[in-house]
Design a protein around this nucleic acid. Structure first.
Lengths: 136, 136
DNA sequence: CTTAATGCAAACCGTTTGCATAGAT
DNA sequence: ATCTATGCAAACGGTTTGCATTAAG
């Protein structure tokens, strides 16, 4: 599994990389920290080092397989980069993450970059707040 | 200097706090990391510990005097919180920071939070790119 | 005089790196 | 057989904390 994906990225097909890819493809959880991945892998009985998780995620980021976010002040999370660009709502209570895309906002961002003569390479919009579950 | 500001925040008027406030009010530089502040203070011959800079900035953040940002992956920067809300353009080459405000974007953000039933507490929009100086 | 603020050094914690070993091609 | 990937432990770097000392009210 995931052999093609890895070969295309020029990476050898190894256990850790396949296991990590399978977590990233999990339908129920899109956003992963290195720690949370490592913990789940241990729970699944896999013998993978935390350093390897960090290394593999960095490689995946390098080759565009994965996107990294710095939502919280101290921990970074990654998500699969297969889908198109989107922005995030982050619950400051429970950490839940929702995704959205707004064309008007996207276009205005381009205009602003132009206005300041910036060659935009990326942009991040994060809305922080209490999610539906946490503020009722 | 800055006695009123500190008293209003319920903080004692001390040397380090006044010096840090004076840096924050510097017209030429709005965004400061703890390290950069500490370095400038040392250059000015002030005997202030780095830990104190961190403590004071945290206090200032607690009482709303200052806003903290996590532009880069690893260092946080603060800016005075006297002005109204604005977003940022960050140059990935030289680290230069520009500020902007776009009403349309602001309003769309509110709508999106509503759509997801989020009680928005804050929001950050950062456009990354090469600034005018760096890409010509 | 009482209590908060400071400087210093040590602790912290997420992340990275060096190195010897195991594994992929 | 070669060269990359891995696990482990140690190192790293920004930030926080414990503690004895100093200073503000």
């Amino acid at each position: 599994m995931y052999e093609k994906l890895l070969r295309k990225a020029g990476l050898k097909i190894t256990g850790p990389r396949q296991k990590i890819l399978s977590l990233l493809h999990d339908k129920a959880k899109r956003h992963w920290s290195a720690e949370s991945m490592h913990q789940v892998l241990l729970e699944q009985g896999e013998d993978v080092g935390l350093a390897t998780v960090y290394r593999v995620l960095t490689q995946f980021e390098m080759c565009g397989l994965v996107k990294r976010h710095f939502f919280e002040n101290d921990v970074s999370v990654v998500e699969l980069n297969e889908s198109e660009h989107h922005d995030h709502l982050v619950c400051v209570e429970c950490g839940a993450v929702e995704e959205f895309l707004d064309d008007v906002i996207e276009q205005h961002q381009k205009k602003i970059a132009d206005r300041f003569n910036f060659k935009m390479t990326d942009h991040r919009l994060i809305i922080y707040g209490d999610c539906a579950k946490c503020h009722k």
